[in-house]
C-alpha cells in the first residue's frame, strides 16, 4: 500500500464530482453571452429567490396595470419604467435580499447583478403573460385575454426590450452606469420620436399627452421592439463571442 496517497485530496476530487451540478443549457448560454458565469448564475437563480421575486413581479405588474389605467397621461407612462426599476432594485437590495451585504463585496458588480435580475423579472413575466393570454384565449375566447395581452405587449415586452438593451450595453462596456444611461436615453428617444412622428403625420392624433404615450400604446411598435431586442442579442453575441485563450 502506498502511504503517500493523500486521502483528503482524493476525497475532495470525488466530492467535487459528486456535489457539483452541471449548469443547464440556459445558464451555459447566458454565461457565454454575458461573459460571466457569476452573472449567469445570478440570472438563473433570480426566480428561486422567492420573496424578492414576488415583490419585484408584483411591483412590475401593479405599475403595468397603473399605466393602463392612466392611458393618455404621459407622466405616468414616462415615470412607470423608472418606478418599476426602483421596485426591482428594492426587491433585490439591502431591504429584502438577505445576502445583500455579501453580494456587495463580490467581484461581479452588484449593479450588474441587479440589471440581470431586472431583465429576468421583465422577461419571465412577459413570457408568463404571453402564456396566460394564450391560455385564456383558448379557454374563454379572444376577448377575455385582451386585458392580459395588453399588459404583456404594452408593458412587459417594451420594458424587457429596454432592459435587454441596458444589459447589452453594460456588458459590452463593462459598466453598469453606461448601460443604465443607454437604456434611459433609448427610452426617452423612442418616446420623443414617437411623439414627433405622431405630430408630423398624424399617427395617433390627439394632443401632446396622447402622442407621447404612443411609445407604448401604438401596437405598430411591438414588432420593432422585438426586432431591436433581437438585434441587441445578435450584437451582444458577436461582441462577447468566446476568444482564444479566455474561458
Amino acid at each position: 500500500m502506498n502511504d503517500d496517497i493523500d486521502l483528503d485530496r482524493v476525497w475532495v476530487n470525488v466530492a467535487a464530482e459528486v456535489w457539483h451540478r452541471q449548469p443547464g443549457r440556459v445558464e451555459r448560454t447566458a454565461a457565454r453571452l454575458l461573459r460571466s458565469p457569476g452573472l449567469a448564475r445570478a440570472l438563473v437563480t433570480t426566480p428561486s429567490l422567492l420573496l424578492p421575486w414576488l415583490i419585484a413581479s408584483a411591483v412590475v405588474l401593479a405599475i403595468g396595470a397603473l399605466t393602463q389605467a392612466g392611458a393618455g397621461q404621459p407622466l405616468v407612462w414616462l415615470i412607470a419604467p423608472a418606478a418599476a426599476a426602483v421596485g426591482i432594485a428594492y426587491a433585490y437590495g439591502p431591504g429584502v435580499d438577505p445576502a445583500w451585504e455579501l453580494s456587495a463585496s463580490m467581484a461581479v458588480s452588484d449593479r450588474m447583478v441587479l440589471l440581470t435580475r431586472a431583465v429576468a423579472v421583465f422577461a419571465v413575466n412577459a413570457v408568463l403573460g404571453v402564456a396566460a393570454s394564450a391560455a385564456s384565449a383558448a379557454a374563454l375566447g379572444p376577448r377575455a385575454s385582451a386585458d392580459t395581452a395588453q399588459l404583456t405587449f404594452a408593458w412587459l415586452l417594451p420594458m424587457a426590450a429596454v432592459c435587454g438593451l441596458t444589459l447589452a450595453v453594460a456588458v459590452a462596456a463593462r459598466s453598469a452606469g453606461a448601460g443604465a444611461g443607454a437604456g434611459v436615453a433609448a427610452w426617452i428617444i423612442v418616446v420623443l420620436m414617437r411623439g414627433a412622428v405622431g405630430d408630423g403625420i398624424g399617427v395617433g392624433g390627439g394632443g401632446l399627452a396622447v402622442r407621447l404615450t404612443g411609445a407604448i400604446t401604438d401596437a405598430n411598435l411591438y414588432l420593432p421592439y422585438l426586432a431591436v431586442a433581437a438585434c441587441c442579442a445578435v450584437i451582444v453575441g458577436y461582441t462577447t463571442r468566446p476568444q482564444r485563450g479566455l474561458q
Binding site: 467535487a16 445570478a42 453580494s103 463580490m106 447583478v113 474561458q247
Partner: peptide
C-alpha cells in the same frame, strides 16, 4: 458555489474549490 462564481473564479476550478 454561487459566491465562488460571483468572485469570478474560473468556472472550471469552482467545483474542487467548493468541495475543499
Amino acid at each position: 458555489e454561487y459566491f465562488a462564481l460571483l468572485k469570478e473564479m474560473p468556472a472550471s476550478q469552482v467545483p474542487k474549490a467548493v468541495a475543499a
